[in-house]
């Protein structure tokens, strides 16, 4: 536990000692701010949903930026030799890093609450829709972070890890659309696996347990894959 928190602390330190986090944050808030202003000024409707799809789209670019260095940098610098020969288990290493990524993600989600706050000055927001949408965003982001973390364990080059992460996320993003165009009948089946389609219930203000379980499963699967990917290196 201590070792895991030490890793999490170290990752957060490194995030803010290197330009990565600042660039990702700047990009995220700049683009979401722009979209929000344009949308809100043109439509003048007090509703978080139109803004929400934009937020999700920006995540597709921000998350790989934030996760790509998590493990690949250790491999590049040779610091994985320090971690893997320490008493820390692979689970502690992977989870510690994931925790750090989640902390950043939490800041992103919390920061995006600024937009509904501005909207609420001009009308009443639907509270369940607002909070469930943000929960959906947090769950979506968490799952995406796990995917990005796994991608980061695949290469010692940050950029390669980032691109792999982006490709994996894009595939999960578009899976229902891909399924629809390839297999005409399989649309429903494929949309069950789409990370975006799963947010629809939340945005309607409906909390569906199976949606939450879906995201949690995705997180667990990709964390297990990350651990396995590191374990494999011991046998190389």
């Amino acid at each position: 536990m201590n070792r895991m928190l030490a890793l999490c602390r170290k990752e957060l330190q490194l995030y803010f000692l290197s330009p990565t986090a600042y660039v990702a944050f700047a990009f995220y808030f700049l683009v979401t701010g722009l979209f929000f202003s344009l949308d809100f000024l043109s439509s003048q409707v007090v509703d978080v949903r139109p803004m929400f799809s934009n937020l999700m789209l920006i995540y597709l670019f921000t998350v790989p930026l934030l996760t790509m260095r998590l493990i690949s940098d250790e491999l590049r610098q040779g610091t994985d030799e320090l971690l893997l020969t320490s008493p820390a288990t692979l689970w502690e290493i992977v989870f510690g890093k994931y925790l750090a990524a989640m902390t950043l993600q939490f800041l992103l989600v919390a920061g995006a609450l600024l937009y509904p706050l501005i909207m609420s000055k001009y009308g009443t927001l639907d509270q369940p829709v607002l909070w469930l949408s943000y929960l959906a965003l947090f769950l979506l982001g968490s799952a995406m972070m796990a995917v990005g973390l796994f991608a980061s364990s695949l290469s010692a080059h940050q950029m390669v890890a980032g691109i792999i992460g982006f490709a994996l996320l894009l595939a999960l993003w578009l899976i229902d659309w891909l399924g629809q165009s390839v297999f005409l009948s399989g649309k429903d089946w494929f949309s069950k696996f789409s990370i975006t389609a799963r947010t629809i219930n939340f945005q309607k203000g409906v909390l569906n347990l199976s949606d939450v379980v879906f995201y949690l499963t995705l997180i667990v699967v990709f964390l297990v894959l990350s651990v396995q990917s590191l374990e494999r290196k011991r046998w190389k």
Partner: peptide, 19 residues
């Protein structure tokens, strides 16, 4: 196995926690 961005003390503190 060093983290170039860290200071010597913060690095050793991290290793101490890890160990």
């Amino acid at each position: 196995p060093l983290y170039p961005e860290m200071t010597i003390v913060s690095y050793l503190k991290f290793v101490a926690d890890l160990r």
